[in-house]
Design a protein around this nucleic acid. Sequence first.
DNA 1: CCCTATTGACTACGTCTGTAATCGGAGTAG
DNA 2: CTACTCCGATTACAGACGTAGTCAATAGGG
Lengths: 122, 122
Amino acid sequence: MAERISDAEHAVMEVLWEEAPLTAQDVAERVDPERGWSTNTVKTLLGRLLAKSAIAHEEQGRRYLYRPLVARDDYVMGESRRLIDRLFGGRLTPLVAHLAERDELTAQDISEIEALLKDLKA
Amino acid sequence: MAERISDAEHAVMEVLWEEAPLTAQDVAERVDPERGWSTNTVKTLLGRLLAKSAIAHEEQGRRYLYRPLVARDDYVMGESRRLIDRLFGGRLTPLVAHLAERDELTAQDISEIEALLKDLKA
DNA sequence: CCCTATTGACTACGTCTGTAATCGGAGTAG
DNA sequence: CTACTCCGATTACAGACGTAGTCAATAGGG
């Protein structure tokens, strides 16, 4: 089931997570223009996502409406875990430490996370 | 330079980050046995990493000694940023929040990170 | 009813990846 | 000198990916 969503496919998923159901046409129109994809490319990606059961489609007249089957949260969680496991021995602290060391954290980030953690303990 | 290191290649890099320089043979012996790679496979990966300048080799008699050119920290940072940008709009807080929501944080994690952040402000 | 525009399905194709066998040259044991 | 061995380099090959063209069916416009 966890058929591993590729990068290009992910771009399509983002569209459907944002709004669904949509027709292939709609999706093509909403994909990040950065990509510069042709409609056909988007259709192929939709087809592949269907094949891996990441999305589903229901007939609507002579076209299909696509909707995500995988929740964004689940995908995001999976990817995050994969990275943390692979690079930080499965622990979040080293990641935060790493970002901190490289000055990738703003004062605001720090406050936000502190507040968040405080809440967690409550 | 930033030739994007693949997953299999990454496994080889981990060995060299752990200890270097090493011969191809040494690397093959130290790669995670989980992978079950033949020596040839490791050699191919070393070749590809050379091609993308992620590692370098120096002649030592009849063989080569391989050493990393890319620092682990840089690699790790790059991958982390990529994930955070792609999935969390470039901000760390949502990632932490996400992990928290899914109960992926232990009490110890929380304390550690709090301590870390406290230090940062000092 | 016939032509054209639309839509999903199928096909294409070069690149990258994972995995490995093979080839050719250089020492090494006789 | 000769057969063998060790090593890096070259080649192989299937499956995933990014990207897109073509085909067949269908639904409207005349």
